[in-house]
Design a protein around this nucleic acid. Sequence first.
DNA 1: CAGTGTGAACCTTTTCACAGCA
DNA 2: TGCTGTGAAAAGGTTCACACTG
Lengths: 229, 229
Amino acid sequence: MRDRSIPEATVGRLPVYLRALVEMAEHGTSTTSSEGLAEAAGVNSAKVRKDLSYLGSYGTRGVGYDVAYLIHQVRRELGLTQDWPVLIAGAGNLGRALVNYKGFGERGFRIVAMVDVEDGKVGERIGPVEIQDLSLLDEIVRSTEVAIGVICTPAAAAQEVADRMVAAGIRSILNFAPAVITVPEQVSVRKVDLSLELQILAYYEQRKAALEAVKDGLATLDLAGATAP
Amino acid sequence: MRDRSIPEATVGRLPVYLRALVEMAEHGTSTTSSEGLAEAAGVNSAKVRKDLSYLGSYGTRGVGYDVAYLIHQVRRELGLTQDWPVLIAGAGNLGRALVNYKGFGERGFRIVAMVDVEDGKVGERIGPVEIQDLSLLDEIVRSTEVAIGVICTPAAAAQEVADRMVAAGIRSILNFAPAVITVPEQVSVRKVDLSLELQILAYYEQRKAALEAVKDGLATLDLAGATAP
DNA sequence: CAGTGTGAACCTTTTCACAGCA
DNA sequence: TGCTGTGAAAAGGTTCACACTG
């Protein structure tokens, strides 16, 4: 435990642990075991122990973990002891939903600005933020010290918006547009693709249906019907 | 290439390839190489070739892949040659945004129903669907043959809604609620957690900031400030 | 001869299993 | 005694590199 860099897979689970821990704290639980946390987070206990061991030795053998202390450590590690100003590009349905999403504010992500290109939208106020013109992005980023940009534009506009964000100095981008965006390597990008998730579900759903057909004797074993020569 | 089951990691990338291929087809490109597809999908070419090899040998050595044919094969493999009726539970901002999201319909996901518990919402019409009472879920699933359920409720309601979905026979769930839901193992669940993604970005953003501070000589090398005894 | 398909090497992640400590 | 922390083994995923073929 002396390498400061935590495996990606672990970083991806820390927010899940954090949520589970916060919930425990709210219910008055002050101590938990790797087993208990595992259950609450939907993983197994070995994973929890290994993941937490990357942060340090914050547990007590024979007892477990102090919930409040662990919350603090996970928060610190994730960089959630500070607020992060966020800018949203694209004021469509999704962009609007995100502005109103309570979960962001609760976790220290403050949406400080929203930009769009449509004249009809610019000037409109959504909750506490006013939609501004995309051309002001650079200036907004500088004056509000935005660290994270969220892209909620149509796919066709995503790359241009990303380029502008990068030019303005943003180094972390969350991309909801169904498009691959290319950025310099020092910029982090994460993508959330709504229909991609449905497509993955469709794959497994189809597979289950096919499997049942076989069990019921309604079909032979050539599952998806592929027929290579 | 004789095992019908495709690695999870590959299944997760097939929709990305599909989108890239469809875009190519729309631009009139009829053939592509693993290199070309890799660039469009934001991965490397070895991965593309290996992934596609799980579907079969659909390329031509020295030439590449026929775009139209490959689209067909990927669609078939993902189960997108049929339509999938989808039900959304929770008519908040996100649920409403999803109903109006064009990307679903384009890919064969038809939102056939929407349910909520709030009296004020039930009866309201959002686009083509009317919000119905949650208690009707069972009946709706049977009559419309919904295969995929999407949870857009607050975290506190997620498990109950998931239970109802499972009881009604749904075997694929996409969960947007920031909560871990537990289901029988034959049910597939995928989750999309909006603030989780931001938290992951915050981690890397913080890391970059810390790294720069060190480079600029503003701090010593103890990156995140952890101080184990 | 360009570009696929694929074994083999490599790296990451998960799981096991148990020594070690409160 | 009970539960953490962690090496070691196993599984899964990625990349390399090249034989093979249209």
